[in-house]
Design a binder for these strands. Structure first.
Lengths: 128, 128, 128, 128
DNA sequence: GTGGTCTAGACCACC
DNA sequence: GTGGTCTAGACCACT
């Protein structure tokens, strides 16, 4: 279910966080669903348990996960809502990036068509 | 001319690179223009000379700068062209970011109007 | 009669203890009253019998319960008195918490009115 | 400056977090102030660097600290404000605790005088 | 020197 | 079995 690229320069625990969040957003993971155990996932991905723990812990503090000692980790009921809310706050990153592209002479049409292409491609890919 | 935020998480040398490149792109710095000396800039910004050096070296290897031993550093004649060419490569970042926003439910219109606003704001800010 | 939240971070056995003690304090459970059997409660709450057992054992060692081998568990005659005595010890927690609130600038009135509201709400909710 | 009780059952990293936050709240630590280095503090307290790191990292994500790789950790400018805001949200804990005390027969006056005593004791202990 | 990530392996409480 | 904390020791990028 998860895939890690140990050669990537983005930390392993961030790769995990990103994937869990994407699964929540796409509806593959729903509220209440259990996540793989720390140890189980650690052997499956050949990654140290502490690294998995760090990812889960961060997701917990973001309210995406509920980790219950002795029982396991579960997707929070309002996980998708939280992630959607967080995303809106990060619209500022778009501004910066587009400003740089504009400065470098990338024509506006190139950006716009690119954006439209991505949204078209998305279409009905929700699983819920 | 340059401004460094020592509290920022983006490395100082990257802040420098970004500013030099922006100055080149906006025409503030043109081919042949000299850059501040490593030592001079280091005291002006209260930054370790090694850090300035690292930024200049990176810009040199990108072909934006020409460092002439004993003379100093100068903007390359084709600096702007090189940067414009490189920008196209960074369109991929746009894809990733927009894909994440789309996934999180940010409506397409929000993104498009944002992009248009930035391009409109740019207007005629070129200095060349 | 009992309710467990398996998602809660407070251990299940503590949730149980708290509820039994509250029932004793509110007079719902009186001296001599029998408690549900370990096995019965375990299936009713979908909880591991060991967990129920752990809660009962702890209550026993606190003198709130009397577990009679082969007969079951019963509320101790002086259970309410013991709990009331123990409560005084927990006044220290109040000190810590209020100190933190005071430090963080929460005004004294906010705390006082809050306390009074809770005591007023309590009113005559005793069942004895 | 810091003190750790290795025998306490509250985790070392939480003890650290609590102390840093208290120092910020009491004005001992002000915005921009540097914190002890991870390694330095680790030897001073005879604690593993990872444990210090975990505490600092958590404080960073709470916005109390700014950790700048290669330079060190610094108190955030709005650290005190953030902590004050967080404290107000945690008034609910007071409710729970007082409710339990009330249930156990602790008289209202005992609680009120206790609260007043703490606020009186506080008086002018701010260092700013 | 600084913070940040990762591994390995231990121990604990809880279920 | 589960998650959570801690230690020890390594490596990296940045200043």
């Amino acid at each position: 279910m998860f895939f890690i690229d140990p050669m990537s320069r983005t930390p392993i625990y961030e790769q995990l966080i990103e994937q869990v969040e994407r699964f929540v957003l796409t509806g593959v993971l729903k509220g209440g669903d259990p996540l793989p155990s720390v140890r189980g996932l650690s052997v499956e991905l050949s990654v140290n348990p502490n690294t998995i723990q760090k990812a889960y812990s961060e997701l917990d503090s973001r309210g995406v996960l509920l980790s219950v000692p002795g029982r396991g980790c579960f997707v929070a009921g309002d996980a998708a809502a939280r992630l959607t809310a967080r995303a809106a706050e990060r619209l500022g990153e778009l501004d910066e990036l587009v400003a740089r592209l504009a400065l470098a002479g990338v024509p506006q049409e190139a950006v716009l068509t690119r954006v439209q292409a991505i949204y078209k491609e998305k279409g009905g890919c929700r699983h819920d």
